[in-house]
């Protein structure tokens, strides 16, 4: 079910996907919007019709977080921004995991995927602008800080909004240690590059993760 929060002049909408509950986020202000991790979700695409989409940010390359990128680019012409590593990997169905998702979902849920149209095993997409290490982007009086946080995947990034809200993708999910076992995942990278960044943030930072609900950074397992 989609959620909705109002953060001063900024509105934040959350759209969990049907499979694996991957969260797409929509931030809107003054008729403009930013999208994070667009998934193929009818409600999401209905909602953004009313808005001017200025940017699409990707937290990482995995299929369940990028499967709405092509529809978004086709219909809304907005630039897709992610790390250079993420950009390289979203172009390859093996590296973005689309190739493995039909089997993975079936094995996770122990049931067949009933709507095959939901999963495209050769899915790939392209970024328009890339960054290495970190980048600051100003938007409608707000500031996005995108920072590479590898570990869950080589192309993982976290997105800090106004130094208060963190869109963590799968780098942080409530109640569990960060998953670094997927192909390309690396626990050493997480320890070396990502943990210090996460630990440098205020403990009251609100985390909006790639799956499930929000939480405070102090409640994360780091």
């Amino acid at each position: 079910m989609a959620g909705y929060f109002e953060l001063s002049l900024l509105r934040l909408y959350i759209f969990p996907s049907d499979y694996l509950c991957s969260n797409s986020y929509l931030l809107s202000a003054n008729g403009h919007a930013v999208v994070i991790d667009p998934c193929n979700n009818k409600l999401f695409f209905q909602k953004i019709k009313q808005l001017k989409i200025d940017y699409c940010f990707l937290t990482h390359e995995h299929y369940d977080h990028i499967n709405g990128v092509n529809e978004l680019k086709t219909n809304f012409k907005c630039p897709v921004i992610c790390s250079k590593i993420c950009a390289d990997r979203i172009e390859n169905p093996r590296l973005n995991m689309a190739h493995y998702y039909p089997a993975f979902i079936k094995m996770q849920k122990q049931e067949p995927v009933t709507d095959q149209k939901m999963i495209i095993p050769d899915y790939c997409c392209k970024a328009d602008n890339v960054f290495e290490y970190e980048v600051l982007i100003n938007w409608q009086g707000h500031q996005f800080f995108l920072r590479e946080t590898p570990g869950h995947s080589p192309g993982s990034s976290s997105i800090l909004l106004d130094k208060k809200i963190l869109f963590s993708g799968d780098t942080l999910v409530i109640g569990q240690k960060t998953y670094t076992r997927f192909p390309g995942g690396n626990p050493e990278d997480f320890q070396q590059y990502t943990l210090s960044f996460l630990r440098s943030l205020p403990k009251e930072t609100v985390v909006y993760p790639g799956h499930y609900g929000s939480f405070l950074l102090k409640d994360a397992i780091l």
Partner: peptide, 26 residues
Amino acid sequence: DSVGHMQLIAALEDIFDIMFDTDDII
């Protein structure tokens, strides 16, 4: 488990330069 399975399949695809069909992965 299912995650380890994806790791294993991806590694074997790299090693032998193949791509498994979904049914074969399962």
